[in-house]
Design a protein around this nucleic acid. Structure first.
Length: 562
RNA sequence: CGGCCCGUAGCUCAGUGGAUAGAGCGACUGCCUUCUAAGCAGUGGGUCGGAGGUUCGAAUCCUCCCGGGCCGGCCA
């Protein structure tokens, strides 16, 4: 596919006292497709050339026309201070649609990541705490970034940095020994969660003290403490894996906080040797002497470690293990300072790869607290969405044979898509009403469009035509489909660069919208003319393909019927 | 007290230097004997939190202020 923007740059620069880089920076997309596909604004040249910008635009347009339209363009028009360029619809339809056909499942992907490694730390739930709707964000954002990078040729490494160590286990052991029943490995997360909540509701001071002692015993390798801990960990992992199966999320490593226990001393030692730490009341701290960063605590005065110690050890370990080009922390915004402190520490320790680390931050979900017990369990949300889809399906498509499977795909897809369809950083108010609404800009809308397109292809019943006449795809609706299809590769790249899956979700809404308008307005099967039917079938297949590719990147299923 | 993030239509959000600020939900009007109405076409709805500034041009960049959220050495 030609890059129309690149073709335009030299063609414009030849006529102006600007170099190609300056021209490239100014080229933009007009707000309305009727104005053209690309535009060049002439405002800046006005002073330099001592002419009005409309006059410059007029001369530029004439100059370009005189030497012949740039390859692939059908018109060049001065409109006020802008020069608008329109690409040849037929040529573009042929090139875009052919690219989708040839590359099919790979359309939008690439090889620019080959030889590069991205390590992504995501999901990372805490053992013995319910997998809440809050963990959904990290899990699905990280999962999407993993697939997007792989699609572009990166070697991706997904790490589930389990919260499986820390003082909360001292509390849990204390609560379990006091109130718990049965074997530790037979506890459900719900049981453990209740113990945790109970500990926080009526806690005499001596229990807090006991909890600290149990944590210390764990750190010292005390077998009684570790046996309880292993049981809790095992019980939790089984429940987590059930959820990851539903979401279709996978990890290459489950190295959680406990994995780094035998690596903490070396990490601390390296920091001390680098001269970045100091002692304070028996604790080991790093004082950044900076308002934004404050002070980082690396080791408590009783010698116990903290999450900061473990995060430092993890970063050092990951570097040795993977030599990554990017290390993404898909972690909530509340930990922004903590991660900034980690990155700055790495810099001060002389680890020159510190700037390959990035905090992929996301907004807080309001209305829930694990301590107060108002948490919304993710599994309940997924099940409720699935049930609702089943009801809708029973009314609208009762003959569908694999209703349970499709209900699950659409219900889970709705939840995942809803989470990925807003910019990461925005805070999030959980609302049943909103998350269970499947109309408009939702996952089910995109899935439905995909299913409708599949339905047309089923009715067609033959192979997708090998040749077709692209000049027949010229209605505004068809041209709009082509225009949006063309953008997919750029959107995927931008999503990877900015670590923003919502760009893809947003794009899919747009693609589904133009696809819906197209097949609502124009008949495909009974279009009359055989050539026209063939051309439209080819377009339908291309739309179907790109919707499927995009949904796949987000981890949302694309059922063929619903 | 300090640092970071957010503030766009009644609600949920796109848009981060360019042409009349866009969607969806909700409301209202049409469209199912025609490829699935989870759809399509249309109507109504906005001092882009406020005030200055930079610029030919600001929702977008800078400063200050207001409102909300988060973080701020022995939790994660």
């Amino acid at each position: 596919m030609p890059n129309y923007r690149q073709i335009l740059v030299p063609a414009i620069a030849r006529h102006l006292p600007l170099d190609e880089a300056q021209v490239a920076e100014l080229i933009e997309t007009p707000p309305n497709p009727e104005m053209g596909d690309l535009a060049f604004p002439c405002f800046r040249l006005s002073k330099q050339l001592d002419k009005s910008s409309p006059a410059i635009a007029k001369e530029l347009a004439e100059g370009i026309r005189e030497e012949g339209l740039p390859e692939g363009f059908s018109s060049v028009e001065a409109v006020g201070p802008f020069v608008n360029f329109t690409v040849d619809v037929v040529q573009r339809a042929a090139e875009v649609v052919d690219a989708v056909r040839e590359q099919s499942d790979d359309y939008g992907g690439g090889t620019e990541g080959e030889g590069k490694t991205v390590v992504i730390d995501y999901s990372s739930p805490n053992i013995a705490k319910p997998f809440g709707i809050g963990h959904l964000r990290s899990t699905v954002i990280g999962g999407a970034l993993y697939r997007i990078h792989e699609f572009l040729g990166w070697n991706a490494v997904g790490i589930n940095h389990l919260g499986d160590w820390g003082t909360q286990f001292g509390k849990l052991i204390t609560a379990f020994r006091k109130w718990g029943e049965g074997a530790p490995e037979d506890q459900s997360i719900d049981d453990l969660y209740k113990l945790y909540v109970k500990f926080h509701t009526d806690t005499p001071a001596e229990l807090e003290e006991e909890a600290r002692r149990w944590h210390k015993r764990m750190e010292e390798g005390d077998e009684e403490a570790l046996k309880l801990w292993r049981g809790f960990r095992q019980a939790s992992l089984e429940e987590f894996k059930r959820i990851y199966d539903m979401l279709g999320v996978k990890f290459d490593s489950w190295a959680g906080e406990s994995f780094y226990l035998d690596k903490l001393d070396n990490a601390v030692e390296e920091a001390v040797k680098a001269g970045v730490t100091k002692e304070d009341d028996g604790a080991l701290i790093i004082d950044f002497e900076n308002d934004a960063l404050g002070v980082w605590l690396l080791r408590k005065s009783d010698g116990a470690t903290l999450y900061s110690t473990r995060d430092l050890a993890a970063a050092l370990y990951r570097w040795n293990e993977y030599h990554f080009d990017k290390l993404l922390y898909v972690v909530g915004a509340p930990q922004a300072r903590h991660l900034a402190q980690l990155f700055e520490t790495l810099r001060r320790m002389g680890r020159d790869w510190w700037d390959r680390c990035e905090h992929v931050s996301f907004g807080h979900i309001h209305g829930m607290s694990s301590r107060e017990g108002t948490l919304v369990f993710l599994e309940d949300v997924l099940n409720k969405a699935t049930d609702l889809v089943s009801q809708i399906m029973a009314e609208r498509n009762p003959d569908l044979e694999n209703q349970d499977e499709v209900s699950r795909q659409v219900g889970v897809g709705a939840i995942v898509f809803a989470d990925l369809s807003r910019r990461r950083i925005r805070d999030y108010n959980f609302s049943w009403e909103e998350i269970l609404n499947f109309d408009g800009e939702t996952g089910p809308y995109v899935q439905y469009t995909h299913a409708r397109l599949c339905s047309i292809l089923r009715k067609w019943g033959k192979d997708i035509p090998g040749s077709y006449r692209p000049e027949l795809l010229q209605t505004p609706e068809e041209a709009a489909c082509v225009r949006v299809l063309e953008r997919f590769p750029d959107v995927v790249r931008q999503a990877a660069d900015e670590a923003e899956p919502h760009l893809i979700a947003h794009y899919l809404i747009e693609l589904a919208t133009v696809a819906n308008s197209f097949y609502q307005k124009h008949r495909v099967m009974d279009a009359g003319d055989d050539d026209l039917v063939a051309a439209r079938i080819v377009l339908v297949d291309a739309l179907r393909q790109v919707l499927a590719n995009g949904l796949g990147l987000l981890g949302v299923a694309a059922p063929e019927r619903m």
